[in-house]
Structure formats: structure tokens, C-alpha cells
Write a protein that binds this DNA or RNA. Structure first.
Lengths: 132, 132
DNA sequence: CTGACTGCAAACGTTTTGCACGGTA
DNA sequence: TACCGTGCAAAACGTTTGCAGTCAG
């Protein structure tokens, strides 16, 4: 994947720091602020937390990234992709994406509540294959 | 509902401040820290934010309350009840509870992911009857 | 009467801001 | 070259802690 191009298409300069954040997220799927910070310290020993925060926010603002708020855990960030659900292992904290057809649920919810629904956040937690 | 009794059953003293937090949550359903703080200032002009935080945490610890982490919003707190989903209005911020049968989704997720699943957090957002 | 709770003030960790410098386009 | 992005330091913010006094049981 050409992240340099992708960043430029979003009017963001492809600085080495920013590019590495994106690559780390592509590689790891979901990382919290501290994990991103630590992941960049090898390549950029003088990287600043402020830089991480600023980058995360500019990329959130243009929906290049998504924030995932997980019950009882720190928020993690992921590259934006189609809507999907998340499963979190309570023991090892592994997070996996899963595609579920939630449209029947949405339909039902919209009927009962009389809301016009746009988005959904579905997060399961349990124990992964290794931890269970 | 006799919240005094309910608090005592949970080994918590029924102080006026604590009781009022519970009553406000019973009345409003879902409130964030600031809203609780403001709601108590009428009755207790010298109420401290520390008191709110301490109470919320003691009541979370014994699962007398639940925290609901909502995407792009502050966390809100609710009295503990059976597992249910939430719908949030993006415009007026109203939050409503909804009972949906998510067991087919859980089953599917568990099959695909090979996780043993315990809990789920399902939050929809859209526009409520008045805002849409 | 005793331990739990409150309110205040200080401390803490996280996130944001301002600014001078440096690097991308 | 122009401007965006970085890194540092300081500030702001939300939350937690310690403590002395108070209150519920």
C-alpha cells in the first residue's frame, strides 16, 4: 500500500513520523497512544508525544483514522475502513476486526426507537483462542 | 424505589449526596460527570467534584453503576441493569436504552473469531424522533 | 462511638498549546 | 520559498489523593 500517496491525497505531508504512525497502524491494526509513542521511539529517539497527539488528531479529523473506545480500556486507533465490529480479549488485550451483518439489528433498533440510525459501535469481549 | 435500602444492601452509607446521585441517575437515565456535578449543586452548593468521582467509582466497583463509553462523547453513567444496548442522538445527545436480542450476533462472532465471548457493548447513533 | 464520607487543596497523568526551528512539496 | 510539521517546554485539563472535620449507623 502506498501510504505516501494516500497521505498526500488527503492534503497531509508525508513526513517520516506521520508515515511511520500510519505504517505501524497498518501493521498492528489497533494501537493506543502509548503504543504508538513507543513504536516510534526506535526510529525517532527524540519523537515528542505532542507530535503523536497532533498527528492522531489531524488524521482523525479527516477520518483517515478511527478511534475505538473500548469499555475498561484505553482508546485505540485504527486506519479507517468499512464499518466493522471489534472483539477484545480481556486477558491478552488482542483486538480483532470482524465483519458481522448488523443490518437486522439496526432495522429492529430503528423500528423500536423511532430513531434514524447512521452508525453503530459493536464491541465484544471475551477470551481469545490462546487465552481461553 | 427504595434507594436507601438498596445502597445499604450494598454496604454503602446512604449519605444525602450519594442518594441524590442515584436518584438523579434513576430520573435521567444517563449522565456524565459534569451533569451529575451540576445536578447536585442546587441541593449541595459546596459539593466537591472529588465527592462525585469517589462515589461514582465506589458504585462502579461494586457494579451498582455502569459506565457507557460513547464514540466521540464523554462517558455517561447509569444504574446497573440487565445487559442492553444504547442509542444516542447525535444532535440533542439524548440516550435511550433498547433491548435487542444480540445472541445470534454473539454466536456468529464467536464462531468466526474462535473467541469465548462474555459481554458486548452495542451503541447506535443517529437522530431521535424530534431531531430527525 | 466508629468507620465511612465529605470537601478542600495539592498532586498527578494525560492532552493541548505556543513557539522557534526544520523539512516537505 | 512558503508553509506545514516537529520537538520542547509550559499550560491546561480531568481525575485522584491525603487529610481534617463531619455524619450515618
Amino acid at each position: 500500500m502506498d501510504y505516501i500517496k494516500l497521505l498526500k491525497e488527503n492534503n497531509l505531508k508525508a513526513t517520516p513520523q506521520r508515515l511511520t504512525i500510519v505504517e505501524e497502524l497498518a501493521l498492528n491494526g489497533h494501537l493506543n497512544i502509548d503504543q504508538i509513542y513507543k513504536a516510534l521511539q526506535d526510529k525517532f529517539p527524540s519523537i515528542s508525544l505532542a507530535t503523536i497527539y497532533k498527528n492522531i488528531h489531524t488524521m482523525l479529523d479527516i477520518s483517515f483514522l478511527n478511534e475505538v473506545k473500548i469499555p475498561n480500556k484505553k482508546s485505540v486507533y485504527e486506519l479507517h475502513k468499512e464499518e466493522h465490529s471489534h472483539i477484545v480479549c480481556s486477558k491478552c488485550n488482542m483486538i480483532v476486526d470482524i465483519n458481522l451483518d448488523i443490518s437486522p439489528l439496526l432495522k429492529e433498533a430503528s423500528k423500536i426507537s423511532d430513531f434514524k440510525l447512521f452508525e453503530s459501535s459493536v464491541i465484544f469481549n471475551g477470551l481469545c483462542h490462546n487465552c481461553k
